[in-house]
């Protein structure tokens, strides 16, 4: 059975409309992407969709009450809310520096959550 699936690539601001053709669930062609990242994105979306998660954690003693954080690379899409839950219980003490590890190996993904802002 042949089916086609359409995706908006999120790897850069171009937002290519990429079409994957599948036969019996196997990818046979990918079209519409401007660069190899588009093909890689769509392949991942069909097998193991992942996202970089950006959010906040509490900070005490700093110039502002929250510090921005991100996953150092993308994590499985299904773990986004589990990761956000884990961040709720974190409380950092100022100063916070960009790159500080906030949670190592978040939710068993093997990926660290790191700080993305400097808080004095």
């Amino acid at each position: 059975m042949t089916e086609t699936k359409e995706f908006t690539c999120i790897r850069c601001p171009l937002g290519c409309q990429v079409v994957a053709t599948l036969e019996d669930g196997k990818i046979v062609s990918i079209t519409g992407n401007t660069c190899p990242r588009g093909a890689e994105y769509v392949t991942n979306e069909l097998t193991d969709p992942r996202r970089i998660v950006t959010s906040l954690v509490k900070v005490t003693g700093g110039s502002q009450p929250v510090a921005s954080v991100k996953t150092a690379s993308d994590i499985p899409k299904g773990k986004i809310f589990e990761c956000l839950d884990a961040l709720k219980s974190v409380e950092l003490t100022a100063p916070v520096r960009i790159g500080d590890v906030v949670i190592p190996d978040v939710c068993g993904t093997g990926i660290d959550v790191i700080a993305t802002s400097n808080i004095q």
Binding site: P13, T54, S55, L56, S117
Partner: peptide
């Protein structure tokens, strides 16, 4: 940029995907 904590900044300038505060920094 300080309040744009999402990623997607800097692909042209730094060839990597940064958050707003990181790009500003």
């Amino acid at each position: 940029l300080n309040q744009c904590i999402h990623n997607g900044f800097g692909l042209h300038t730094f060839k990597e995907e940064l958050t707003g505060p990181e790009y500003a920094a």
